[in-house]
Design a protein around this nucleic acid. Sequence first.
DNA 1: ACAATAACTTGCAAATTGCAATCTAATAAT
DNA 2: ATTATTAGATTGCAATTTGCAAGTTATTGT
Lengths: 144, 144
Amino acid sequence: MSKQTKKHLGGCPVAYGTDIFGDRWTLLVIRDMILHGKKRYGVLLDAEEKIATNILADRLKHLEAVGVVNKAQDPENRRSYIYSLTQKGLALTPIILEIVRWSGSHLKMNKSRRELLKRIDTDRNGFIAEIYARENKSPPKLAI
Amino acid sequence: MSKQTKKHLGGCPVAYGTDIFGDRWTLLVIRDMILHGKKRYGVLLDAEEKIATNILADRLKHLEAVGVVNKAQDPENRRSYIYSLTQKGLALTPIILEIVRWSGSHLKMNKSRRELLKRIDTDRNGFIAEIYARENKSPPKLAI
DNA sequence: ACAATAACTTGCAAATTGCAATCTAATAAT
DNA sequence: ATTATTAGATTGCAATTTGCAAGTTATTGT
């Protein structure tokens, strides 16, 4: 992820988005938080794709800086930090879901993932609402 | 974009997606093709973000290799090549549109871009159908 | 024939990623 | 109380990628 190129010019929304999550590792971190409810450094480190420690730390710091994630110390264990998705972060859910849908058309998936895709197709808004509820955030207004 | 890390493990759809478009430049190229109908190397090179020639060539080659883009020589000018989105490529449209929507909530945009956002919100499927029609491809089945 | 163009390719410096070791503060175990 | 372990990084450095600008080749325009 290029810090040098992290400047969107001319106000293009896609360029703005790519400045924030237009790299593989950031997208995967967001996936883990949105779809799997992961909230801790060590748990995020455990993803299948094996992110490097410095990359994970860098990405979490970045996501906090852009307001996608909130970092708070766990009062019961001050070594540990809780990373929560903000409203801005949760609002990335539809993007993640569209990625799942697109990939679902071109990738062999196991049964549980096929069922996830079916869930998304069957009741997308309900699925989104569940993710928001899990994070104790109010869901967005329903779109048609 | 890491060739070494371009391997999705375990069949996760988001990881699969990030292998294909999980980098800034690829997303921006896809944006230009989907939203602006760009089809030629020189035109894609002219984007606001100023992609480097080697990066553009690399990304187009990659997109062709993964079946998102088709490359054909222009019969009227054999120096020039036409890069067309395949069905697989066009199916990325909902992702691009969700990125536009998300960014629209967090970015000041000029009038034309605000109108684009309003278009997407008002008649998303119609907008998608227009893009498919522009590319002479049959649109996907309507989702609820 | 020569100039201009389209699409790259190349050389190389700067930046980023990836791996593994290391560090510090806090908690757990003894 | 002391030692061991843990959580979350940070660091050193090699490998890879990006970015810039010059260069190349085939094709078209003059």
